[in-house]
Design a protein around this nucleic acid. Sequence first.
DNA 1: TCGAGCATGTAATTCGTTACATGATTGA
DNA 2: TCAATCATGTAACGAATTACATGCTCGA
Lengths: 199, 199
Amino acid sequence: MKPTTIPLLGYALMGLIHQKPSSGYDLRKVFAETAMGNYSSSAGAIYPALERLEAAGLIRGTVEEMGGLRRRKLYHLSPRGLTELKKWLLLPVESDDVLRGSGELMLRFSFMERVLGASACIAFLESFRKALSGYLPELESFLAGHAKDMTLSSRLALESGIRGYQSLHDWTAYALLEYRGASPKAHSRTKTTTAGGRK
Amino acid sequence: MKPTTIPLLGYALMGLIHQKPSSGYDLRKVFAETAMGNYSSSAGAIYPALERLEAAGLIRGTVEEMGGLRRRKLYHLSPRGLTELKKWLLLPVESDDVLRGSGELMLRFSFMERVLGASACIAFLESFRKALSGYLPELESFLAGHAKDMTLSSRLALESGIRGYQSLHDWTAYALLEYRGASPKAHSRTKTTTAGGRK
DNA sequence: TCGAGCATGTAATTCGTTACATGATTGA
DNA sequence: TCAATCATGTAACGAATTACATGCTCGA
């Protein structure tokens, strides 16, 4: 039982297959049409990935001969696949993850409720929020220290990144409200305008 | 003279070398310490990349024997490298770029003022803003159409993406003000709270 | 003298991209 | 019948990650 390093695309596929058993073609369409996760894409990338997952025993493919239709290989998640998926979803939120773009974190979150339920989502949001609270002041002080040596455009690019993290920070508050507040009547998505807070 | 496909890391290196002739070690430190661009990283990734750039005639490396110091290979941009860098910076802002994460766009913008001057930055910001204005309604309507079929966590993940683009949209307005407004006295970085605008 | 940091590299592996290839089926 | 779309693949290539290897030099 090797460490079984699964690339991000593998988890994306497993998450989607968990939602609904799918063929390679189905999955390609999800990536192409829903602009999901932006990364990963289409063609000769996902079929090999599916083969790797199957070889690792994480998914199983069965050829469907639905009433005279074209043959399609439907994949569904194996018990081991579900275990691995859960393990990945339960990984702690490291500050490195936040730095590395948070794309993986969002992918995890998007699958989380279906696989682990609401309480895991709330715990995730809280630790995500904490990681952001720790990282934002770092960025702000880096900006404060280097702003004078930068061109305006490079400083603005940095500020854009900071704003992105602030927006993410605001979002965690909003998301926690959605999870805790029972009635989704107040569905307005107004900005909280908080964020910039020092620690 | 082949099409010379340069990967993103290559442009990042060229941009940094343009700012200041650097050794591989210097560049690694920039990536490691400034959390620049998040992507790209360190070690046996950047030395090969530098070799490729040199082989392509885009940079030139000269061994420095600074007063009994360790030998270090200083790279500086060649005229052809500068041409390629400018060409990349002047590329139009496609809506695909926005979708694919806007990381490349920000990298371009951060180098832009030093290489092309302020007017190019303004033009870039305007077309970036336009691309975002076109993309945001698409995302909003996708959300409106699919929200009912989603778990709360997957819907929130999508909303987080939308908020990110809105924040970027706000940022373009702020950045244009910084470029146009002469006195950088009003350096407050307050949120514009606009954004969600249709077209 | 000895370890930490400077500085540059190499090799194996793994993965994604691009482009091509194939065949079945449906609608015009 | 012919094009579009469904559906699955394969092969060449480029590039990143990881881990290892080397040697210099400075300060304690």
